[in-house]
Amino acid sequence: MYSKLILGLVLAVSTLSASATTTISGTVDYSGATVGTSCDGQSESQQPVFVLAAGATIKNVVLKAGAAADGIHCLGSCKLENVKWADVCEDAATMKGGAGTTMYVKGGSAYNASDKVFQHNGLGSTVQIYGGFYGENIGKLYRSCGNCSTNGSARYVVIDSVKLNTVNAAVVGINTNYGDKATITNLQIKGYKSGSPKVCYTYKGTTSGEPTAIGEKWNTSNCVVSSSNVTSY
């Protein structure tokens, strides 16, 4: 299904075009190159631009506007360092790793995600977004899958030192009935006022149909965030 395997290479080109998914193992530094495949709106049948094997790191790459498809898929513990989405197509990145694995998102930026930036599917795993990551004109920064057929246990997200501009729905969405946990510190939101946008928004997840919205929560076992952790700029 995936092609164009890259093993621990350092790339020094400015623009790359691909017609199929590139699978990465080891550490790959794209040195600021712009890479893209295609984009079919919010179609969930799109393939990712990159698949990161367990233990892989991708650095210093720009996913091309209008060609970011389903972004990046992480199959185990992985690291996205200074990755920039000029325009999110379906999702920017999806965590598929299992229990005990972590997708680290250090720095980078994402623009124009009509739904969400980071999708979290793997049960028992963690998504950590930190190091000055910037998002602009997004629906949600993060969503734990609300209706995956495999739902049934917890997912975890840790957000620290992140800056957002124009969040149209909520910063994070989690499923409290499965024990999801969001820990948020040092979050800056342009023009933030209490309730606008929602910060930690909770749902009752399901394995079919649509999840049930519960509402924004603060200082709970699921939403580990206080008002002092969120500031306006």
Rank of each mutant, 00 (worst) to 15 (best):
G209C: 05
C200H: 01
G191W: 06
V167C: 04
V171K: 12
T166M: 08
Y192N: 12
Y178C: 03
G191C: 03
N186M: 04
E210M: 09
S208T: 12
V157N: 13
E210D: 13
Y203Q: 11
G195F: 06
N168F: 02
L164N: 02
N175H: 00
K193A: 15
T185N: 11
T183F: 08
K198H: 08
T176R: 15
Y192A: 10
S196A: 13
S161C: 09
A169I: 09
C200D: 02
V158S: 13
S161G: 10
S196M: 08
I189V: 15
S208H: 05
Y156C: 03
N168A: 06
V158C: 02
G209S: 06
S196C: 01
S208L: 09
L164H: 02
T206R: 13
G173F: 05
V158E: 10
A170P: 00
G179L: 07
K163H: 12
L187A: 12
N175V: 03
L164G: 04
V199R: 06
K163Q: 10
N175T: 01
S196K: 12
S161R: 10
G179K: 01
C200L: 11
V158N: 14
G205Q: 10
S161A: 09
K198G: 00
K198C: 00
G205C: 07
S196I: 11
T183E: 15
Y178A: 05
V167P: 03
N186F: 01
K163W: 12
I174W: 06
T206Q: 04
K190P: 00
V162P: 10
K190A: 14
T166D: 07
T176C: 01
Y203M: 10
Y203F: 15
N177P: 14
V171M: 08
N165C: 12
S161M: 07
T166R: 03
G173S: 07
V167D: 02
N165A: 13
D180L: 08
I174C: 02
K193G: 10
K163V: 06
D180A: 11
K163C: 03
I159D: 09
T207E: 00
A182Y: 12
K193E: 11
V158T: 15
Y192R: 00
V158P: 02
D160E: 12
P197N: 03
N177L: 13
Y192P: 14
N177T: 07
V171N: 08
Q188I: 13
G173C: 04
A169R: 15
E210T: 15
V172N: 06
V171P: 07
A169H: 14
V157M: 07
N168L: 06
V157P: 07
D180P: 01
A169P: 00
A170Q: 05
V157F: 08
L164V: 10
S194K: 14
T185I: 14
V199G: 09
K198A: 08
P197L: 01
T206W: 09
Y178G: 04
N186W: 00
K198L: 04
D160V: 02
C200A: 07
K204G: 01
Y201M: 05
K204N: 13
N175I: 02
G195A: 08
G191K: 00
G209M: 06
V167Q: 03
V172F: 02
S196V: 15
